[in-house]
Nucleic acid binder design. Structure first.
Lengths: 231, 231
DNA sequence: AAAAGGTGTTAAGAAAGCGTTAGGAATGTC
DNA sequence: GACATTCCTAACGCTTTCTTAACACCTTTT
């Protein structure tokens, strides 16, 4: 379980370069989108709002500089230009058109990745959406590791919190006892179904209005438990 | 001729390079500030809050990377590194330390100026806010590295300060022990959770009203610590 | 209606984690 | 080299959390 990596859009027409970059990006945990033409690139950028764009200047259908200009008409998404042209004039033009960085081919993978990280820092704060789960009177801030019930903070022990967030991750679906024991207590042995009953009781007392008649933390007899989503 | 140009701080020890850059910058309408050492650079940055910093990595008194790290402790001022070292590793290290761009000597004036314009675009719109964190009786000036409790300055050792500002950077969120140890003591081995307990005790004694019943420096048993923002 | 299986509840002991103190080692300063 | 500061480490008592057991309950089956 991990948050999906930032989304990178690659606009590049050479198949070889695309393959190389795809491997580098995916290997580093980024989600990945590619376009072979400027038009397609602009279209994908509009639809998916990537967190950063890698742009080759030598595109078949339009000048790379126009792509940057058009993009800057509505967006501040960081753009890293990748180009075979290493002339100073090319760099200056691209940067002044709105690009955030300029890399001359050939370049090293590690440098590219480092410059992508810089770009993501810039687009940064709002790029990382804060994952907050809300349901009824509950509000769970996964980033802060904080649980609120009607605005009041409720303290959960590590196991309680882990059990609760496991149910949240599978919200709406039944989670079998076996699965819960594995995800919360770890694969190792010793975990008994009794633990679940004890900790579900504690969770219900801390979170439910009527712990004996749970509205959300439901038991599925013989199977497991589920976080019930309907109101 | 009304608004003064943006202020650029140059940190560089070679006289020849300084002269060259001074001419380039002043000729382009920038105001200009220079330092020959890392210490002086940090000091000038604190006092004058330049709009961008040009930093040579090869300084006589301290490692250029440390300059970046120290600066990033309180400021987001754009930093363009200028270096004779062109190794990929050097670039990656500098960028990951918090630099925004990396130029290898020799470079063209026009490219440098274009990259400065990019940097200014980034730092641009929002006027750099005073990097001061306040909470309850506390007032922390990240730039001056000064901590006040009810107006009285409180002295923190380097580790105490680092631990405290790490919690401030993640204010409101739980920071795991592992994360704290990594960020404060550095990735290297040897860091034990015991350190955290000792230094949290010291911080609480220096900062909290009732060190044994902390209001802000809270423990999350089994997980880590958090700087609690609510009252 | 009794029995059986699974579930809920409570409490207490065991284990793990935390706060605190203090002394010696390491580091830096003059 | 002497001093001051800061850092690391160990020991001890305390708090929180986890585990375990005993028993009550509820539902379905026979």
């Amino acid at each position: 379980m991990s948050t999906p990596g930032p989304l990178i859009l690659l606009v590049e027409d050479e198949p070889q370069m695309r393959r190389f970059l795809r491997v580098s990006l995916e290997g580093s945990g980024y989600r990945y989108l590619e376009a072979a033409t400027g038009q397609e690139g602009l279209s994908l950028a509009t639809q998916h709002r990537p967190d950063a764009i890698l742009l080759d200047l030598g595109l078949p259908d339009m000048d790379g500089l126009d792509v940057v200009t058009r993009l800057r008409g509505w967006s501040q998404i960081p753009v890293i230009v990748i180009s075979a042209r290493g002339q100073e004039t090319d760099k200056v033009d691209a940067l002044d058109a709105g690009a955030d960085d300029y890399l001359t081919k050939p370049f090293g993978t590690r440098e590219l990745l480092a410059r992508i990280r810089v770009a993501l820092r810039h687009g940064g704060p709002e790029a990382e959406a804060e994952p907050v789960f809300t349901l009824g009177r509950w509000r769970v801030d996964l980033a802060k590791r904080q649980v609120l019930v009607e605005g009041q903070e409720v303290h959960l022990t590590p196991l309680e919190y882990s059990l609760f967030t496991t149910l949240i991750r599978h919200a709406g679906k039944v989670v079998t006892q076996r699965q819960l024991l594995k995800e919360v207590w770890g694969g190792a042995a010793g975990a008994q179904p009794l633990y679940l009953r004890v900790y579900m009781t504690q969770l219900r007392h801390k979170l439910e209005e009527e712990p004996s008649k749970p509205r959300y933390l439901k038991t599925e007899p013989g199977v497991g438990y589920r976080l019930y989503l309907e109101d």
